[in-house]
Design a protein around this nucleic acid. Sequence first.
DNA 1: CAGTGGTCTAGACCACTCG
DNA 2: GAGTGGTCTAGACCACTGT
Lengths: 238, 238
Amino acid sequence: MNYARPTAAYAHVKLFLKTGLAEGRWAPGSLMPSEAELVEQFSVSRMTVSRAVRELQAEGLVERVQGVGTFAAQPYRASSTLTIRDLHTEISERGHRHRADVQLVQAETVAAGGLAQRLGLPVGSDVFHTLIVHYEDDVALLCEDRYVNPSRAPDYLSVDFTKTTPTNYLLAVAPLWEAQYSIEAGTPTVQEAQLLGIEPADPCLIIVRRTESQGTPITVARLVHPGSRYTIEGSFKP
Amino acid sequence: MNYARPTAAYAHVKLFLKTGLAEGRWAPGSLMPSEAELVEQFSVSRMTVSRAVRELQAEGLVERVQGVGTFAAQPYRASSTLTIRDLHTEISERGHRHRADVQLVQAETVAAGGLAQRLGLPVGSDVFHTLIVHYEDDVALLCEDRYVNPSRAPDYLSVDFTKTTPTNYLLAVAPLWEAQYSIEAGTPTVQEAQLLGIEPADPCLIIVRRTESQGTPITVARLVHPGSRYTIEGSFKP
DNA sequence: CAGTGGTCTAGACCACTCG
DNA sequence: GAGTGGTCTAGACCACTGT
């Protein structure tokens, strides 16, 4: 049976603080009620109050300093949850067909410069390189140029990338990624334009992503999406 | 400093589960140890185990079903923290100078169509409209075309936007945003190209953002950044 | 020193799912 | 009914910051 609003006690406390913050009841940086005060006010145990405030802290709405108190956070940043998904899954969920056109799968010798450093490899060692064009119902959606650290994915070259995307395979081999990315608008290279079937001057969304797993660099990828065909969407809540 | 010592008990449990997931010890979707088992294994109380698993759940690493158990999450999405910041702050932190060129500040009558609906306003009512070009050290970095719901920011038109950015002002008036955004690559309008001092064919990063505060639509903005001058960067951790 | 948050315990009751 | 997670309590000890 559902009562009207039988929310958990910790949720009550959390809601109280959250709406207070939304109404500007505690200015950014100012001191908020202590746990002891909230215990008194809501007649709950300290563990309950603690959980409420800890979750607000995790959401970035308050800052806590041991021995000092809890403070309203500066609301100058709103954190968002940007979901990076496997392209195959994404296309399938739209009810469309995904096809990968594998242009290149090979081992190369890594030359000096940024790439060796970014993959944590000594100059002259092997690196795996793939170049794949992804289609959604025969429309080119992405040109994926990727380098992979062989030590963490030794079987990478033998994967059938018409059936599994590199993202998917690498997630399975090395879960729990950390990644840095940059997103910018630019023009494709001549080769990319040709592969995507667009003009070299057409604007593209270019994502460069570098991922690590447990401190080891895994892969560096340059993802080029035709601007007219691809959009990143998302939302964020405080 | 020292990161050696065995941290909190709940952190031990959390680390155990997290590394196990990273090593593929529990396949995605498979059943993980119950709270009772972890209580036994680590000789801690159930509250402690509960906290560890709950935090993993918040991080999206596990899924829990009451009455059933805890399951390793499908690693098909990695959540990222994309930080939307006030442009003035961002530029200042780079040690540069921010200047806003206010092209337009006026009230308009909202016509039928998407805008009225997206701002939750009846057709024919007033809406505030600003068009501002932002410069970093005299280089045009952003053309900001923004519509604002007057009911939540009645003083919007009297703000001096050469001193305060709209983002900044709206954050103060209506904190705790929720927003939906889309990011794409495209070309600017003729007017935008002129204001930014670029060619109409130059690729731009175009962000369309709609924000709400406590369920009320606040503002809809179209942010056009020259692709050659602006990049979104970020990182995500599992 | 008094006050704050950080953590922990050993129980408890509940709602839920499944066989 | 057995097992699961969801929540809660009334204490407790600790580490830290301020005066």
